[in-house]
Design a binder for these strands. Structure first.
Length: 156
DNA sequence: GCCAACGTTGGC
DNA sequence: GCCAACGTTGGC
């Protein structure tokens, strides 16, 4: 069992949007970074824990507990000419971009970025590292436990 | 394979 | 809108 933090822009897909979707599940479309793709392709397993994070918004922070809900499969938006994530260089018989489905288990309060930064127990959380821009980052088990306790999450 | 130029992310 | 940090591209 691995744990992850996955960023979504709430203007695109918020935790409310994801929770309102059928089975509380959304395909994690639009990742166009190889390192993030590789996490989904090579390391994620169904049932892995996910922290749902809102980025590029007024109050960035962790807003929900989720889980990996599928094995990896090709991101359909890469083949859609009208999609902002269209990739002309990716061919259907050799898809460049894969994704997984993510199921929201529980919405939480917004554990904001400033709160995360001021907690010494989270000092080396990957997403807080200087200059980090990865939209998917691994979370250590001790950080996961600490964060779930902090959130009072029932999905622990 | 190097690296400068350019593009993107994302907090502020 | 600014800009630091980082990833990607492409000429050589």
């Amino acid at each position: 069992m691995n744990y992850w933090l996955m960023k979504s822009e709430p203007d695109e897909v918020s935790v409310d949007d994801a929770f309102a979707a059928p089975r509380h599940t959304v395909p994690w479309t639009g990742v166009r970074n190889y390192q993030a793709r590789n996490f989904m392709r090579d390391q994620m397993r169904v049932g892995d824990g996910v922290l749902f994070y809102h980025s590029s918004c007024a109050e960035p922070g962790i807003v929900g507990i989720a889980e990996v809900a599928s094995t990896p499969y090709p991101d359909p938006t890469q083949f859609d000419r009208k999609s902002p994530w269209y990739d002309a260089a990716s061919k259907p018989d050799a898809p460049r971009w894969l994704l997984v489905d993510v199921k929201v288990l529980e919405k939480t309060r917004n554990l904001t970025l400033p709160e995360l930064r001021e907690d010494p127990a989270l000092a080396d959380l990957v997403v807080l590292r200087k200059g980090n821009r990865l939209s998917i980052t691994p979370v250590e088990a001790r950080h996961w436990r600490h964060l779930l306790k902090k959130l009072g999450a029932s999905s622990a």
